[in-house]
Design a protein around this nucleic acid. Sequence first.
DNA 1: GCACCGCGCTAACCTATGTGATTGAGACTT
DNA 2: AAGTCTCAATCACATAGGTTAGCGCGGTGC
Lengths: 247, 247
Amino acid sequence: MLTELFLKGRLRHDLNEEERSALENAVARTIEIRPRVTLVERGQLIQHSYYLVQGTMLRHIDDRRGERQLVGVNIPGDFVDLHGYAMKRLDHDVGSLTGAILAQISHRKITELIDSYPHLGRALWFSTLLDAAMHREWIFGLGRLNAEGRIAHLIAELIERLRLVGLYDGSVLPIPLLQRDYAEACGITPVHANRSFRTLRERGALRPCGEGRMEILDEELIRRLGEFDGSYLYGTGELALRTLHDR
Amino acid sequence: MLTELFLKGRLRHDLNEEERSALENAVARTIEIRPRVTLVERGQLIQHSYYLVQGTMLRHIDDRRGERQLVGVNIPGDFVDLHGYAMKRLDHDVGSLTGAILAQISHRKITELIDSYPHLGRALWFSTLLDAAMHREWIFGLGRLNAEGRIAHLIAELIERLRLVGLYDGSVLPIPLLQRDYAEACGITPVHANRSFRTLRERGALRPCGEGRMEILDEELIRRLGEFDGSYLYGTGELALRTLHDR
DNA sequence: GCACCGCGCTAACCTATGTGATTGAGACTT
DNA sequence: AAGTCTCAATCACATAGGTTAGCGCGGTGC
């Protein structure tokens, strides 16, 4: 099943079988793309959205000088541009970090899904609001943490999100971000990202383990340095749904 | 009419009379609150959302040490916590900057609205995605601009948003943010916010004009310093809807 | 086999921003 | 009238992070 990870660990148990298979059947086709290619460009009129089945995608805004600011990272189970459904044009670019497999769903189908399954509609809405919650947390990190904390926060978030969808093995962060990518996400220079990774290494928090991946040695420390509290991911914790969604 | 500013300058002409009056009739009551009070607290279970009729509201995340990071500013025409409809608990606090008037709409009513007027449902969704687009732009600003640029970007955004809803008179920014508020929004210290305002003043970009308000002397300069391009507000410009929304 | 290139890594130096303290104006209390 | 706040405005000093340059390693192309 392509969409089995959608909202996994979140509203999962709140989507019934009918809704889930309707979502599954809405997929027009799957596409496979290579690493570091652009999937959706800012400003382009879109009629489909993409659900990420495998791989990692990056979302970014570029400034005049071509400097890139990451505004989001997507992992399997995420829609990468569902907000494009209501917006029709994105304000940012979406591209692959690794090779990736995506399921394409037309906006027409999404309208049908929402009309037929109002609760699924709210789940789709919810998933775009999760993005917004992550954005807010990134704003917090950029505004209040130093470089080391920002990197730690990002890593802690990725670990937690991977864990929610069952893709974290407890030791290796399976996302091959370059130090440049961390720099572009954290609003620092690659040189300073390197410095920060050195101190993280020296503290025994993590170490590189080839192919751009990180071995996580002390997740608790990473969370502390990043002042990370994952409740904003609405998986577990104080913000998660504790009662059945109002259907 | 309470909700006349909702999506004004955006999808406005895309809401028909029936939808608009349905929204208007969904308002249970209006409340008035005083300056600098909390309206919705992080984590609290909510059953209503609030639409801002008058005044300015601030949304913020606080860290362990009580340091506050603003994650959004709301002006009349905005829902301040519509995302609470799908999330049930907010990941951040919402409070007033000035005295404010808000229209309360119960989540039950919102469900009815969406079920009866699918297009209005998408408009509501769209409005929460506008928030997300602003979040992304703030991430960009925090990541890529220096202190002066961040302040300029924030001011340029506020001007543009006020203009879209017809609340900008072309010269005074009618939002009495303190320098501390700018600092909390821009991830800098109040001392540095003060320095940055001095250089903005010296450049002839703006000047304070009492009650915490700013007189805008050179909007073009402010936009340039903040690398501001308002298309992400989906009002005018390359991202705005140019065709009728798919109903 | 050699040249190249991207990436991680480091050092020396410079600058933007943080820190801590002080001052004065205006509003509000008592 | 005196005391107390809060906020804008500074200053002197400390430091996180930017800049520029360079090195080595591994992959890739010729």
